[in-house]
Nucleic acid binder design. Structure first.
Lengths: 163, 163
DNA sequence: GGTATATAGTTGTCTCGTTAACTATTAAGG
DNA sequence: CCTTAATAGTTAACGAGACAACTATATACC
């Protein structure tokens, strides 16, 4: 009624990538709001969740799993450590690395927040048929594959037309 | 072959929202690489593109169109202005606002980059049937609607089960 | 007309993401 | 062995998104 945003008018005409992009943004924004009372961000929760399912991972392993660079993960873990949700322990087998564990505090927080986020994720895909969900999944995978292909072409040569 | 990231193994088991999120991230990362030679980011290009199709918008209007907050847009426009791609002109009709225009420099850059990004967007959805694209579009819209619904419920009451 | 409210835009602070430079440790190859 | 290269992690700098506080102007209402 008040502010005519792009969601009201121009979604239909947006190119698909931007549509995906906007949807992801909307999702993130709402997830952040939901997590705010727990003094957590979505990006902090990702690694936390990973640590909770596999204890004692290195930062590299965690970063691979949640698609975060080493630099980025360092700070995120710093913040989680400051909130005493995780701890880094020395790894005698490889002194370059440290192994990351949840504290009891972190453990219980993950448990609590997981339920909330799971229910949120479920609600967000409500009303979609199984078929549509499958197609969505397949389509996104195809796009990801395309992106990888583009990246390869771009960095081996300059957009070759045929091969 | 080298680094087993989440794209190789766990895409299938990821919940849909995260899948959308990862796809959007991949898209953004590649778009940024493509734009780098032009000293532009994807987030800078969005408003630039909008300004190029409708000259003399206020910042508010631009922000609505590209889903950016006023605060965020202020800085992005500052950067674009420093690169002499845009200019802000006084609006005598409402002295709180300024109207944003492209410089000739900005004009030609938008033209150049638009072609590249369009072709990129097209390539990224290559191999998808029209039908699948329609379903993707419909599905994402449905998710967006769901998110709006969740937001309403959350802020009027505490997750009411039924109404 | 004058006060109250709403709106446009800016600025500060924090989190997140990326790149590049750097340290420490480990692995490889002569 | 010892030099070289690779890897794990940290730090700094910058763009970007979010929120809160603030200024200036415009609108509403009494």
């Amino acid at each position: 009624m008040s502010n005519p945003t792009r969601s009201d008018q121009s979604l239909d005409e947006n190119p698909l990538p931007r549509l995906i992009y906007f949807t992801a943004q909307d999702f993130r924004k709402l997830a952040e709001k939901i997590l705010k009372p727990y003094d957590l961000t979505l990006e902090q929760f990702h690694p936390l969740k990973i640590i909770s399912t596999t204890h004692g991972l290195t930062q590299r392993q965690i970063g691979d799993e949640c698609n975060k660079s080493a630099a980025n993960l360092t700070r995120i873990l710093d913040r989680l450590q400051n909130k005493t949700l995780i701890e880094r322990r020395n790894n005698p087998a490889d002194r370059r690395t440290s192994l990351v564990f949840l504290t009891p505090h972190g453990e219980s927080l993950v448990k609590e927040v997981t339920e909330i986020l799971d229910s949120f994720a479920e609600k967000s895909t409500q009303g979609l048929t199984i078929k549509d969900q499958q197609i969505l999944r397949r389509t996104l995978e195809k796009i990801t594959t395309n992106l990888q292909q583009i990246e390869l072409n771009n960095f081996n040569q300059n957009t070759p037309e045929e091969r």
